[in-house]
Design a protein around this nucleic acid. Structure first.
Lengths: 192, 192
DNA sequence: CTCCGATTTGATAGATCGCTCTAGCGTGAC
DNA sequence: GTCACGCTAGAGCGATCTATCAAATCGGAG
């Protein structure tokens, strides 16, 4: 039996992503995890906030791996960008527009209301930007241009997720993909 | 004395934007509006959902005007894009990174949980896209390219809002501005 | 087997949630 | 004056929220 703590975190990650942080109840989480209520406070003594923080950081790490998967073992930057956006679009369609960014909803909810959780989301975004910068720099792009390109791509992806989930169409993701390709080509053009 | 309904809607708009839909209580709203609790149900008989829907649609209309302000009376498309992003960055800084998009937080919260409200956010985004398409088409860009450019700009702006609020820096907005300028120049290049 | 810490239970507290209800106030019509 | 009606006013309902607590249970060490 997979550890109770892992099941609670998995349920929390799924529910926070779909219903938001304040929109998800602890009872709902333990019910979906098939765990007794008390166990939640055994593994997360500081309660909902601690669970939220651990879910944010762990989800952030899982998405970090996508940078390596899409860009770590290829010399085709543009192809990697297109594959990443296409994969996001497919996941979105398959989950009925529920599973987009694992932390965006929570990030907006807590940005002005809960400093520890805001910090957790900021750490995740920072880690993504640093990882993207390092990976893109492999293509010969300068450090600063690689960082800018990463922020541009992450920004386009997050924004497209909002519009796609609301409009229930993948068109914004397709547009964001094309925009990111444009930005990638522009960054590559600076390479002598 | 500004109408009680208006004060309730203004308070709701501010609190929903900053704390989210589920994160805002009705008692909190009437307290901030200085209105009696009963008045809320007098003006919004269907309760929180009706208030949420009216706030979303009214906030959407207010932001719609920004398209005209920034692009309605200029022949400088790139300058308008830069001014729009600069204005957003200034507002964000002035409000301690609280006031970004009025509906993005709610849009993500309700996308998979509340169909009437999801529909309301979708109508707002659709109105923005249609308005942007019409305004950008004035610059000689073809209908389809103007629509794509609009989605690209809105997408970049929304994504930059997420990162900026979380990271508490306007850097993502600056990057999104540059990316949108790139997209605008590319769209203009197709004009013969 | 005994013992002990780790984990599992779920009842329950105390606060807050969205919402309903009734009573009263104030102002314009007549 | 007085009637009607839009609005104010807030107590209180049932449900749900996060969090606490003590008791039951399990599993490995000796």
């Amino acid at each position: 039996m997979a550890g109770t703590k892992d099941r609670i975190m998995a349920a929390g990650a799924e529910l926070f992503r779909r219903n938001g942080y304040t929109g998800t109840g602890l009872k709902q989480i333990v019910a979906q995890a098939g765990a007794p209520f008390g166990s939640l406070y055994h593994f997360f003594p500081r309660g909902k906030e601690q669970l939220g923080e651990e879910v944010i950081r762990s989800s952030g790490l899982m998405y970090l791996q996508l940078f390596d998967i899409h860009f770590g073992h290829t010399d085709d930057l543009v192809g990697g960008v297109e594959a990443a956006f296409a994969g996001a679009a497919e996941t979105l369609r398959e989950t009925d527009y529920a599973d987009a960014c694992p932390i965006a909803t929570v990030a907006l909810e807590v940005a002005s209301t809960n400093e520890p959780l805001r910090k957790a989301t900021a750490d995740v975004f920072t880690a993504w930007i640093d990882a993207g910068t390092a990976v893109f720099a492999r293509f010969g792009i300068g450090e600063e241009a690689a960082r800018t390109l990463t922020i541009s791509v992450v920004t386009s992806l997050e924004g497209a997720f909002i519009l796609s989930r609301s409009l229930r169409t993948t068109e914004p993701l397709a547009v964001a993909s094309a925009t990111s390709v444009l930005a990638a080509r522009a960054a590559l053009a600076t390479v002598s």
